[in-house]
Design a protein around this nucleic acid. Structure first.
Lengths: 345, 345
DNA sequence: ATGAAAGCGCTAACAA
DNA sequence: TTGTTAGCGCTTTCAT
């Protein structure tokens, strides 16, 4: 009667063995679906497991096999549709192979990234997914050297040493700008969101490409540079509209920024989109097709990107010596309601 | 030279012991910061660890101690600011105690919840955080019986058998409605979001409470019931405005719905918020203070809720026999720009 | 087809 | 203060 407070500790392989009247290696064989178990024995073992509610101890398994079926994801934050979509892709691919996902959010503490990465490399995980990493110089070196499997997600300018996946940023912005030009716009502003700087740079190039094609000179006034740091749609829009030659269309490098810009245009300047001014977003997050007017934007296959990245990682966990590879997914212009030809006159 | 392909397997406690010239239990003592190690020895061990890049094998540790320092979180999806804030709270509390977070998203597959829960109970995690769970009947029973630590987050109508945390939904809606009434509104619509049904019901009660206080009869036309399932702000707003006596104010049960309603009001009906009609949100997600007009809303302390829930869970992991407890956090009306007194006449 | 036994890397009780 | 030892629960040879 003394010391009754024991935890209701789970049944082990040994309990099953006793109950089924077999050796515990036989139980293990049944548990891991190994061949060489007679149907009768298997049956008895299975019943014993059922009866005792047996489930294998993952820690013991992992200790022995060196694999945990856990993948870690490092991301700055998760509260956006954009990230939500990427994770949908992760989870689909991971669930298909019975992998679980461990989440690390840095909330843009650069220092924290390096710290997390080394924790992850030493912890439970079999691999690491880095989503739009920042301050990567501090740990990428070590990661590469370690042989620990990883994949970088949303890599704009791929390094040949890193496995990564990205999209056609330049083409995406090019397509959008070209569309606006074809509509007749000649003064097109480009507002960028807080984002991976490289991504913004690439999109900017696409914007320039299209302009060049139409022989429109690049006007830095239409591309407020400081916005790379902290976008203030209201102030920026204001400044844009005060130009001697204000834009007739605004290209943004993310849908949420486009939403804000549309609001400001309507409420603070009494301008109607698209009649008075056109707006184009980037990414095509779910809300883009719901807002009013429905947003014309560049589709970024976020979920697909997540899926591809996760699959790449799983492959590399299986075969750690696979050479680095960069996959680039296609963007696609989605034309909806937020653009018109410019007002004449 | 044969069989060189070995993994660069990590240094173990034994390698360190050899290098430092001590027994490996001494190394363990140093690793776990146990007392009773002479400074000299500790120093040598530490150097050996450094030299070999030693980090303890978590699986071995967990196998022995029965603890993994991992908490699982079950949630329907992560791509909203609302969920992002809750997770911020989780992570703060978890990181403070060196816990890691494993993520399971169900994407509203009810069946998947039960499946995940049993996986989680048998897997690596020491505890489980259930965020706005659905189809809970199917697994709560088992969870309660198992003694596996868990906490329900955002529980509107707490069950005395479950540890949970929630907010003053009823009071929140009451405060908002009362504010509108005090402003002079008499026709106030109430639109609910896709959400935990219980939460919606509670908020509806608060709405009714305030109405009753002002002796305004409850008009079901102002509270479209079918919206509990799938809200269509555009259609609903339309219907509301077509009423013989249309509302002069619209209360919504989430900020994103309020945003959509404001858009529709402005674009499809040419109505200005707040001059022509008032709108109130619920939750106070970060965007609420950025949109134009800045949204008057009921603050839901999401991050705090996450923090409290995670701390509760950690306590229960330490002391599994703690009795269930429900914590209710206070909401608070945040007055910004989206409400005015009603137009006269 | 089954059992015996070794050991994954570690912690902690016990000796010395 | 340090070393010895016994497992944690499991997979996997190697015999039988």
């Amino acid at each position: 009667m003394a010391n009754t407070a024991r935890k209701p500790s789970r049944a082990t392989i040994i309990d099953i063995a006793k109950l089924a009247g077999v050796s515990y290696s036989t139980v293990s064989r049944v548990a891991t679906n190994h061949a060489n178990v007679s149907p009768g024995t298997r049956e008895r073992v299975l019943r014993a497991m059922e009866q005792l509610g047996y489930t294998p101890n993952q820690h013991a398994r992992s200790l022995l096999t060196g694999k945990s079926n856990i993948v870690s994801v490092l991301v700055h934050a998760i509260g956006t549709e954009y990230i939500g979509e990427i994770f949908r892709g992760f989870e689909e691919a991971l669930a298909a192979k019975d992998y679980n996902l461990m989440l690390y959010t840095t909330h843009r503490h650069r220092g924290r990234e390096a710290e997390y990465v080394s924790n992850i490399m030493q912890g439970f995980a079999d691999g690491l997914l880095l989503v739009v990493p920042m301050g990567r110089e501090s740990y990428l070196q070590r990661l590469r050297a370690s042989g620990f499997p990883y994949v970088i997600v949303e890599e704009a300018i791929p390094d040949p040493r890193d496995p990564s996946v990205g999209i056609t940023n330049r083409k995406g912005a090019y397509d959008a700008t070209r569309y606006l030009l074809q509509l007749g716009h000649r003064r097109i502003a480009f507002i960028t969101d807080v984002m991976n700087l490289n991504t913004a740079v690439e999109r900017n190039k696409g914007y320039c490409d299209a302009l060049a094609e139409f022989r429109i000179p690049y006007d830095p006034e239409l591309v407020p540079e400081d916005d790379f740091i902290r976008p203030q749609p209201s102030a920026i829009t204001q400044r844009l509209l005060e130009l001697r030659e204000p834009p007739t269309a605004i290209l943004t490098s993310s849908d949420p920024i486009a939403f804000r810009v549309m609001e400001v245009l309507s409420r603070e300047h009494g301008l109607h989109v698209p009649q008075d001014i056109s707006v184009v977003g980037f990414d095509d997050i779910p809300t883009a097709s719901i807002v009013s007017p429905r947003l014309t934007t560049v589709r970024h296959p976020m979920a697909e990107m997540g899926r591809v990245a996760a699959r790449m990682l799983l492959e590399r966990i299986q075969s750690p010596d696979l050479p680095p590879e960069h996959v680039q997914l296609e963007t696609q212009l989605v034309i909806r309601e937020s653009c018109h030809p410019p007002r004449v006159g």
